[in-house]
Write a protein that binds this DNA or RNA. Structure first.
Lengths: 201, 201, 201, 201
DNA sequence: AATGAATGAGAGTTCATTCAT
DNA sequence: AATGAATGAACTCTCATTCAT
């Protein structure tokens, strides 16, 4: 029994190494930089070996995607300590944006690619959905606290999420580059604050 | 003169046919599905012929992109008739979303691709920027009318644009597929309305 | 009759323009820079037109080659004024080298290409042969003047020609680049002088 | 260990096969006749396979080039046995010429192509330079022995090398085809002898 | 005489993937 | 479990040349 467990552990380790290598390549040079060959070279195994641990290239990217969600969710969990719901939402949003801008490639993979997550059925969307649920919970708290006008929590959450995702996406793709560098952060902050504006503000 | 004009027309027609073919392929399977070969096959010409009308593959995608902007801007111009600024903004936003959802691939090309528009300098961003400026003008009108709290028009415009873009992007990429189909439209409407909520609403 | 003559003149002019354009392109960027398209563009005619005046690309290069020989022969003719045969040979050689280095591309075409002159029969070699004959005549004069040991003029001429051509070729192809730039000219001069050394020198 | 060695041998064999195929194609129809596809067809492998053994087409030609230099240098080494410096030079020269005429295409690649060796800096010219150095050493011996007039060894060596290269090049390119076939060899011999003529000869 | 649209063949190169060992 | 040689299909793009007009 010890043997089969060790084997399992070895296999998991190998998967990790492959994912780690893929991630580094991915961050460095984008999707096209991740070739099965280059991953193999990085972990010093042969290309064929990778296929013992992953079905194909897409499978690898998918796992990378899920890893990204896990990191994002871990961030979100840390928010629980913050008592004020609006503050929680605000800090969470900033986290989200920071994550996107620090890991633009991964973020793209997670939220803006069809290739990897594909047109999969609704059930496979578990990861993005889970991330959203956490977010939505915070929104609901704001509604309950009377910070936003009564509305469906989901609707409001979607609006806020869309704003965040939109900002992230526009920034990553350089579509806000017309803004002067120095005012960029301020504008982003204000834009997000505008979305969070309370009633009567 | 009749001859040269006919030739010009023929050439324009050919460009149209190529763009049309490229578009169809693009919509079907994304950027990678558009190969010079496949376009050629679709229009029943040899691959080389395409290079008589376009510099290279990127040129084609760029033109497709510009066509998209033209259509979008044309839509925007039609808004001028609407007197009420908030209504104008609201209708404009819905237009924008509808455009994105009706031409998802093109929309992606326009606002969410690095490949085609590239990492061009701020001055080359003319087309997306122009679209934004029209939008920003409407936002300013709302501010002037006291609908939103006094704030920098640009900031507010970016926030609203980001929301729209975020909604479009999430929808296109199927990230909101967890919503029941029948409530989708309502939710989107409400989400956008939330973003546009007036002071004290 | 006037008409047909004008037409002949026009045709000749056209051939000249094409050759001129081809030459410029050739000198600028080598053989690969001369495409039928580029020639056509330069003379502002369509590619097809060129085929009305030349059989094909090779034909053009061949004519360019012959032009080169004509220029070289013109140079040689100017030598007749020099009385001293060794001096004549020396000056001629320097001319030859200078021509090669000033027109490296053309020189290559003339003396170091199979593609253009091809494996043509001995009779088509008229031009290079003629150039050689002029050279050989000067060599013979040296022999007659007792400057070189008695030997067949042709043999001696070939030896000297080979040296010149070898120098030209090595220089053009950069195979003497290991020599310090400043001593290059001196070495070339001395090398050629060595070949021309008189008996007992 | 036996296995890895066999693999090494197999790989070396494969490289040889590719080079051999490339060489044959090269000799048949020059540089342009060597296409990756044609090599692949000749060795009955797929085009991609070649890239497992060589970086690209130029790499293959480069190796062919180096092989040529190795063979030439091997020839040169064999000269050491000859005591008389002039004789050594003479035999060496004949070797050189014979090599050039027996391997005209390779010779061209080695000494008269920019494409393969390129416009590399002076230090990359190692191979041609090395060949020249051996040659220059023999020339120096002749000078030391008083066979040629005192002069810089390098200058003299260049003069002689140029003659050899010139003869080789003119012959390869058929520029001496006007000579009657039967006297060709005699003339070449004499021409080279003329270049080697001693003082007072 | 001139056009210029069109072709067809082909170039080098890259890659995910497979499979005998 | 791991290899790594091999594939085959695909890619973008270029060019000399032709021919109906």
């Amino acid at each position: 029994m010890g043997i089969s467990e060790r084997k399992k552990r070895d296999a998991a380790k190998m998967r990790s190494r492959i994912l780690e290598a893929a991630m580094q390549l991915f961050v460095t040079g984008g999707y096209d930089n991740v070739t099965m060959r280059s991953i193999a070279a990085k972990i010093e195994y042969s290309p064929g070996t990778i296929y013992l641990y992953f079905q194909n290239k897409n499978d690898i990217m998918l796992q990378l995607c899920y890893q990204g969600f896990e990191r994002l969710l871990a961030h979100q969990d840390a928010l629980e300590k913050i008592a004020d719901p609006l503050e929680r939402l605000s800090v969470g949003g900033r986290y989200y944006l920071a994550f996107a801008l620090e890991n633009p490639e991964i973020y793209e993979l997670m939220f803006a690619s069809t290739e990897v997550l594909g047109d999969s059925g609704p059930d496979e969307e578990a990861a993005p959905l889970k991330a959203f649920r956490g977010f939505a919970k915070n929104v609901k708290a704001c509604l309950d606290a009377g910070i936003f006008s009564p509305a469906e929590a989901e609707t409001t959450a979607i609006a806020l999420w869309a704003t965040l995702h939109g900002l992230a996406s526009l920034l990553i793709k350089g579509r806000l580059r017309f803004l002067p560098e120095e005012s960029l952060n301020k504008v982003i902050d204000q834009a997000f604050a505008f979305s969070l504006r309370k009633r009567g503000e």
